[in-house]
Design a protein around this nucleic acid. Sequence first.
RNA 1: GCGCCUGUAGCUCAGUAUGGAUAGAGCAUCGGAUUUCUAAUCCGACGGUCGCAGGUUCGAAUCCUGCCGGGCGCGCCA
Length: 545
Amino acid sequence: MEIKEEIRRSIERALKKIKVKKYPEILLERPQEREHGDFSTNIAFFLAKELRKTPQEIAKRLAEDIRPDPEIIEKVEETKGFINFFLTEESLFKNLIQILKREKDYGRSELGKGERIQIEMVSVNPTGPLHVGHGRGAAFADTLANILEAVGYQVEREYYINDIGTQMENLGKSLRARYLELLGEEVEFPEYGYQGEYLVKIARRLKDREGNKHRKEKIEFFTQYAHSDIIEGIKRALKDFGIGIDSWKKESDLRKKGKVEESLKNLKKKGYLYEKEGALWFRSSQLGDEKDRVIKKKDGSLTYLASDIAYHEDKFKRGFDHLINIWGADHHGYVERLRAAMSALGHPKESLDIILYQLVKLSRSGRPVAMSTRKGEFITLREVMDEVGRDVLRFFFCMRSSYSHLDFDLELAKKESPENPVYYVEYAHARISSIFKKAKERKRKRRKIQKIDLKLLHTPEEKNILRLLILFPDIVASCVQNYQVHSIPNYLRELASEFHTFYNRHRVLSEDEGLTQARLALVEGVGIVLRNGLRLLGIAAPEKM
RNA sequence: GCGCCUGUAGCUCAGUAUGGAUAGAGCAUCGGAUUUCUAAUCCGACGGUCGCAGGUUCGAAUCCUGCCGGGCGCGCCA
C-alpha cells in the first residue's frame, strides 16, 4: 500500500542519514492504542545492540530525522522506543475517495502478478455425502481462493476424485446389499460396507426406476451407480454452498493414461524405489518422512500414495506456478510422504503448500453430536446448510484460524441475536442501504465526490471509521501471506461495530446539506468495504433485514 | 509408545510467522440508552498465575527444554 511504502521509505532515508546500513525488514504495525498513532515500527529495538544505545535514544533520534510526505503523515513521535506515525486527515479523505472511485476493486491488487495457482479442495471420496467437516474445508479453501484472485493470482479450483480401489468396491457391495434387501432377498451386509442411510435411499431410487432387473448385476454396476449418484449429490451441495469447482480430476483417468506407471518410472530412475518382501517401496525416509512407504503391494496393486504422486506430478506438468492443497487434519500423516515424493521428482519444496484445517466439533446447545462416516452417523453439509443458512455457515467456518479445532453449535448459529456475528455485519450493511433508500425518497442524492467537503467529517466516530477503512487492502494482503482467512470476518465485525457506534451517535441525513453529503460519502465507503469483504467470504450483503 | 494440531477471561476465540508499549474481541452476567436514517443497535461495569515448571533475552502469550490436559493420525486400508 502506498502509505506504508512512503513511511517505509522515509525510515530508510533516516537510517541512511545516521549511517545504519544493515537492518531487518521494516515492519509497520497497527498499534493497539489510538494515542500511539496509526502505524508504528519497532526498528529501534533491533538497532540497539549494534549502535550501543538504548532503543529510546535511537528512536528519538530517528523520529527527528524521519520526514515522510507531510501530506500523508502529520506527526512522527517516539514513545518508549517505538516510532509512531500519525496520518493526516487529508490521507484519510484521499483513501475514502479511492474507495468510492474503485468500488468493487477497493482491496484488490496486483501482488500475484498473474501467476497461476491451483487449489486442490474438498476431494472427498465419493463414498458418501459431504459432512459438516468437509464444509469447513470447502468454505475455507474457496475463501482463500477468492482472496488469491483478488490480489492478482490466476486461480483454479480442483476436486480430485478417488474413484477406484477397495473403497469403491465396498461401496458397490453395500449398494448391492441394500438393493437386494429391498427386493426381499436375504443378504449379508458386507463387512466393510457403508451403513449410512443414504445408500438405502440410492437403492430405493434404483428400484423405483428400474425395478428388479439388476438383481444379477455385477458389483461394478452398483459401484458405478452409487458413485455417480453420490458425486452428483456432492456437486449439488457444493453449488448450493456457493462453491464453484473449475476442474474435476478422476484418479481412474490418471491410471488409464498411464500416468502412475510414468511417475513410478521417474522415481525409479532417480533411485528412490526398491523391492522388499515382494513389494515396491519408496525411500521417503531419506527425504524427511519417518519411514519408507509401500508403493506397489505384494499382490501387484498400487497404493493410494502411488496415485497421489502421479496426480501431483501431473498438476506440475499442467504448468501451475504454485500448488496449494487444503486437507483435513486427519490426513496430516500423508503430508511428509507426498512432499518427499515431490522433492524426489525435483519439484522445489516451496511450490507445494499443504494447508490443514482442523475438524469441526459439532454440538447442539452445548451437547456434542457424534459423527462416524462408516456407520453413517454424521450430519451432512446439506442438513446444516438447510438448518442455519448458507451465509451463516460460511461465515462461521471462516471466522477461526484453520488450525483451531472449531466448535460449532447449531443452536447458536441459528440464533438471530447478538451472539451471531454474521447478522451483526449484515445488519450494518442493511442499515447503510436503508439510509440511501431514505435519501432517495427524500430526493437527496450524493453529489460528486469532488463537490463534497470531507473536512466536515471530524468526530472521533467518523475518524475511527476512516482509519479502519484504510486498513482493508492490508488485511486482504496479510491473508495471502499466511494462508489464513479469519482476519476478514474479524475485520468486518470491527468495521460494522465502528459503523453501529457512529450510527447511534450521529445522523447521516440532516438539515445540514454539507454534512449530509460528507456523511453519505462516508457510509457509502463503509458499504463498499463491507460488500467487498463479504464477497470474499462468498456471502451476500443484504439490502434489508 | 511415536508424530501433527491445540491449551489465553465463566464460554467461543484473536494475538504466536518477524519476541517489544498497561494481553484484546464477541458471548454470558450486571447497570443504563430509543419522539430520529432499521434496537438484529449503542454506552458502561465486571472478568486474566496467557496449562505447569525451567531456560534464552534488556524484554516471552510468542523462542528452547521437560511435564500435564484435549483433538487427530500412526496398515502391503482408502
